[in-house]
Design a binder for these strands. Sequence first.
DNA 1: TTCGGCCATGAGATAATCTAATCTCGCTTC
DNA 2: GAAGCGAGATTAGATTATCTCATGGCCGAA
Lengths: 291, 291
Amino acid sequence: MDRPQLPLNALRAFEVASRHLNLTRAAVELCVTQAALSHQIRGLEERLGVTLFRRVPRGLVLTEEGIMLAPVLTRIFDEMSGTLDRFSTGHYHETINLGVVNSFAAEWLIPRIPDFQRLHPSIDLRVHTNNNRVDLAGEGLDLAIRFGDGSWHGVAATRLMRGAMMVVCSPGLADRLRNVEDLLSMPLLRSYRANEWERWFAIHGLPAPQLRGPVFDTSLAIAEMAARSHGAGLVPVALFSSWIESGRLVRPFEALLTAGDYWLTRLHANPESTGQGAFREWLASSFGTEA
Amino acid sequence: MDRPQLPLNALRAFEVASRHLNLTRAAVELCVTQAALSHQIRGLEERLGVTLFRRVPRGLVLTEEGIMLAPVLTRIFDEMSGTLDRFSTGHYHETINLGVVNSFAAEWLIPRIPDFQRLHPSIDLRVHTNNNRVDLAGEGLDLAIRFGDGSWHGVAATRLMRGAMMVVCSPGLADRLRNVEDLLSMPLLRSYRANEWERWFAIHGLPAPQLRGPVFDTSLAIAEMAARSHGAGLVPVALFSSWIESGRLVRPFEALLTAGDYWLTRLHANPESTGQGAFREWLASSFGTEA
DNA sequence: TTCGGCCATGAGATAATCTAATCTCGCTTC
DNA sequence: GAAGCGAGATTAGATTATCTCATGGCCGAA
């Protein structure tokens, strides 16, 4: 249907009525009389050639067609409304509440935030770091960057980068490592992902080692511990390659463990806003130029 | 901004003008005069307290604020328009063009389509099978179900089910398999994913075997070949477990190879329609009830 | 029954929207 | 540098779409 034909006011009337299922109350929300709504909705039904409501003694019931139309319109008007609200201060501004797993925030995102700010000064990015156990809805987040295999319920996921893991340790400890078995002679720093070391050793045909010591909930802590010669750790290559280059950490073995990837996630229930789309594209292009 | 305050007509006027950057031409699209548009847009700017266009000698240029608003509105009105078009026949009907990787279509989707049809008779699902090499935009598909690790560009992915692979062969051949090495005595059926067998043998600490013979582009062909005693194949557990139960195939070893998962994918550029959302939720609930 | 809640309807009022005619501005062109 | 042109702005008045008011009909509850 072409732009000039869109019965915008009638659609709004229908949307409000579809939520109240009562013209009188819907009329209050729209600040008009019940009669006005009645006219609008009848007009819409005629225009579409479809019955949207079944009129029953005590009110309205949506027809099959009404059921298909109403939620789309509710979403559309909510989005319109939300977008217009972003102009309330006299210029556009949007807030994105972003959850980010600690290590990604520290090693990748935070250093690049100024670049995003420069490109999108009207978007107010609020970063909430976490240990990857993140509940988008419960924590009021719009987006979350997390580590995993992309399998989250009710979530649209966009892969950001590979999460292949490498073994790291301090330059001092590296001297003691001639072959893979030598790793067993030093503490192996553990994450809450239980079988990482087991799988790493399996690659080399070795049995699972006995693990002791504290469990860390972020690669950042593991990298720090490793850098201070407290043991060897498994950390994502993509995040900690700069530590290798600067000599803070050493990578004694080439083997990689694929444990998951980094993803940008959003609840399916919340459609993507302009700013969220801009952020996603900025992320994608940032990875694109690095590769 | 509350529903009654939404300046719908003015927003439509702005949206059209933002595409033409020329009030005169925009007026033609909206079937009104240039003066009408000029009024509407000035009214909108006053209402929002924001300048949306910079007036320049030969036309209009969007301001920063206009740039943020225009694409949202274009998407919104396109969606509205598309949704209303689905009523053109007098009742709601929507078409979803779905690309599906062969094996998933044959073993999982096709048998369940009647269930979806029953729940959503107004949605017309058109299934296009392919060998997983699918280009959503190029092939005019709305959605695609494919196998992989979720890493596709410009795509929102929702994981449907695990794609763990198992070794299968015919009951006859299974008798010859006492241990993993015995596999090397029979043809190993190849897919176009090159190193599957290599990785499967690596799990057992064995070197990569020499592979010969045809390469198949769908697990379905591999399963068929295996069932006819032409060799052993690697196929997804979730799709072919019924072949095991019926005795058509045998699973001689427990070991699983994780090669990827099955995903529902959609271009970020195309927002999800009602029907697409319904289809995604139907898929999710179908897997939920099975697990 | 009678009342109350709810939607439908038709005629007239109202307000939003549009048109027509005219201006202004600044670039082009000769 | 003057005329012409293409664009948006403006103003007043016309035109509609939209709304209100008053009323009617229907159905279930009291």
